[in-house]
């Protein structure tokens, strides 16, 4: 991996994160920020920075990072440029879990009800997909993921259908759109350990993914334990993306797009694209979250919606491009 690329990405991510700390309802200039942090007494500016902006920025970085990383790992594992974290049922499972919490009104007791249920939902659906595809190969896994995803999505629709009052339906719909507004340190504490643990598992797949570019038989002959590689990728995705979806709602396309943006820069090597894809994902989500705070069109523009608006045309371009390249 080229150190220059890595350095450039880190610099851009740090710049984006700093802007994310300073921009919002209350604008803070860099000088004000430094003064406020150095001041002995707690003041309004430190309150804004520490309690509102920092957790939100950290979540954007972590969530974007894990989505980009997981997308890169799954594309490498399945040797398919259209693979993304949602494929295995992680996102829909997390959504279904969170929707259950909202449906039964558990969110009024604690704001963490939705993320905790979401995390459980993600782990259950991925676990089910993996158990179903235990004996099969890659295709079995994709099909099992699609099936489990469909079941979770049906559950979400059922909850919307029977929602006790219009307000609950509204709450479910907005949650599904994905957002980082009003997230606190509690959310960071809940999600960060899972995202970091998932990220470590995913990063361990790098070498194996490189060899897997030659197919499973050659990878095995080169000493790669393909079964273990698959487990690392799936558990890492379930933990990391599950936790990310649980606190922020469904955010699509990042896992699909980030690896593609970075791949040409690392010579298309599937193992080398992991860290750049994580950084690119972090950058996309941080910038998009920043944009939701800057664009005022009446009601809040949801993060997930904005990313879909940008991501969907890219997906279209990708489909056309891949068609043209493959025989």
């Amino acid at each position: 991996m080229k150190p220059a690329l890595l350095l450039a990405l880190v610099v851009v991510v740090v710049l984006a994160a700093s802007s994310s700390l300073l921009v919002g309802e209350v604008g803070v200039s860099p000088a004000q920020a430094v003064r406020a942090v150095l001041a002995a007494q707690p003041n309004l500016t430190t309150l804004v920075l520490w309690d509102i902006r920092l957790p939100r920025t950290l979540l954007a970085l972590l969530i974007g990072g894990i989505l980009g990383l997981s997308g890169a790992v799954l594309q490498g594992l399945l040797r398919n440029p259209l693979a993304e974290p949602g494929l295995l049922g992680v996102s829909s499972g997390a959504s279904f879990g969170a929707v259950i919490a909202i449906y039964y009104g558990l969110t009024s007791a604690t704001s963490l009800a939705a993320p905790v249920f979401g995390l459980v939902g993600a782990l259950v659906t991925t676990g089910a997909a993996m158990a179903l595809a235990r004996r099969g190969g890659t295709l079995a896994l994709i099909l099992a993921g699609a099936a489990v995803s469909a079941i979770a999505a049906a559950g979400v629709e059922l909850a919307l259908n029977f929602s006790p009052n219009p307000y609950a339906a509204y709450e479910i719909t907005t949650w599904l759109m994905g957002s980082l507004a009003d997230r606190s340190w509690d959310h960071v504490k809940l999600a960060a350990p899972f995202i970091v643990a998932g990220g470590v598992l995913l990063l361990l797949t790098g070498r194996g993914l490189d060899a897997l570019a030659l197919g499973e038989a050659q990878a095995e002959s080169l000493g790669v334990d393909v079964r273990r590689l698959r487990l690392l990728a799936l558990f890492g995705t379930a933990l990391g993306v599950g936790a990310a979806t649980a606190v922020a709602g469904a955010i699509g396309f990042v896992g699909l797009v980030a690896p593609h943006l970075m791949r040409p820069l690392v010579g298309h090597r599937p193992g080398q694209v992991l860290i750049p894809a994580a950084l690119a994902g972090a950058l996309i989500v941080t910038m998009a979250d920043l944009a939701t705070r800057l664009i005022h069109l009446g009601p809040e523009l949801k993060l997930g919606v904005l990313i879909s608006l940008i991501g969907a045309p890219f997906f279209l371009w990708l489909v056309i491009h891949v068609q043209r390249r493959s025989p």
Binding site: R79, R207, D210, A211, A213, L214, G215, Q218, L222, G223, V224, R263, G267, H268, R269, P270
Partner: peptide, 18 residues
């Protein structure tokens, strides 16, 4: 045998040293 990604010949050969 084939490569699934457009990796350079040089890097494909290097994979033999995995």
């Amino acid at each position: 045998p084939r490569a699934d990604w457009p990796i350079s010949v040089e890097r494909v050969v290097a994979l033999g040293l995995t």
